[in-house]
Design a binder for these strands. Sequence first.
DNA 1: TTTTGCTATGTGACTAGATCACATACGAGG
DNA 2: CCTCGTATGTGATCTAGTCACATAGCAAAA
Lengths: 221, 221
Amino acid sequence: MADRQWTSRFPGLGALEPEITNLLLRTSAVVDLPAGTRIFGPGQAPENYLLLLDGTVRVQQVSENGREIVLYRVAAGQSCALTTACLMGYEDYQAEGVAETAVTAVAIPRATFDEAIARSAAFRKFVFTAFSLNVTTLFKLIEEVAFSRIDERLAQRLLQLADPSGHIEITHQQLAAELGSAREVIGRQLHEFQRRGWVTTSRGSIDLANREALRQLATAH
Amino acid sequence: MADRQWTSRFPGLGALEPEITNLLLRTSAVVDLPAGTRIFGPGQAPENYLLLLDGTVRVQQVSENGREIVLYRVAAGQSCALTTACLMGYEDYQAEGVAETAVTAVAIPRATFDEAIARSAAFRKFVFTAFSLNVTTLFKLIEEVAFSRIDERLAQRLLQLADPSGHIEITHQQLAAELGSAREVIGRQLHEFQRRGWVTTSRGSIDLANREALRQLATAH
DNA sequence: TTTTGCTATGTGACTAGATCACATACGAGG
DNA sequence: CCTCGTATGTGATCTAGTCACATAGCAAAA
């Protein structure tokens, strides 16, 4: 099957040494996970290094008092950098990873991962670059949470979550959990967006009516 | 001089392969940086992997509109994980690192770093563990910024910054930059702490008068 | 069809924190 | 003692989060 050749689907893995490619293809499994699967979380350390072939994984932080904030998403063609961190440092993170859609992923066992890291400069570069990119997004997130207005962050997130037709299936509560805010706040902001004609809302979904206006607000500083 | 043997001052580097230890000792320089030195920042990528022998480095995020927040500190005996990230991913971070005190550090050139990573499992583990630990602190920071009260965060930071006698040389403005808050807010909180007899303040410095009370507030959730 | 019940959303009052515009106060150097 | 830069104090106002509770949409059961 085509998945035998999955290494070619990751730009950084194209130039891999042949014996490393073979090692990866031989010892890794391609797995399918249904939407909603909890991939890792507190008390559930990931056992494999995951490369996403299809679908998206949402990584979120849940605080003691039940409040949530989405840290980042992992899309097809990316590796789950947090998984990396866990494998590297044997750290038990508080964050959890959830399959947001049905997910197809390559699961590289730790032993293979360690061996590939040890033997291949190209593989190291691939892993580190992915990891490093993610730290950058965390820095941006800290800055946004600390200094950005909630309406800007909401506009930005709506644009990010919308499908090509501008539709989003999401509740106010879920949007609040995206941004680490509160349901009422999101509701009021959406109300204002609707008043301005930028979105239309209905129970459980939102449609973008004026992406340009939202984009302008999102990039306003 | 004693610094020839600096590898022994990092627990994770004690069990290093002898030829790797030699490589590190041979090609790395021990450098002294005065307090206030900007070690890396936007447009100033670090050229070496730094291991701190003495002093502390403050890593902070500065936003476009000039607001600041301290991301973490690197203390003696630790490596600068962000430097790591830069070396790994060739990413240009927005964050900047500043020597908070006079700093003595080992500067490992990139070539040596790459070689040690390639050849030594122990060195990899040392680097990755340090990096991974730091991601954990970033997650905690995100949670605190998003969900914690400013008085709790201030109490926590005062305890962290105080010297053994409970004294801190710092202005309200600097404390605000520590926490990503505003000077007036810090001033009002300190006023309240003082009213309760937990601290005494004077121009440019603070003294802790009741650490236990501060600790209790800091760990309240 | 009507009822029931769960979930989503709306709303006002209140609190916390950030922002703005100033007013003072301190302390080193002239 | 005076001056000036920096640090701190303060009220008004705005934004966002919290709390308590009301209402609305929708689907399954009666």
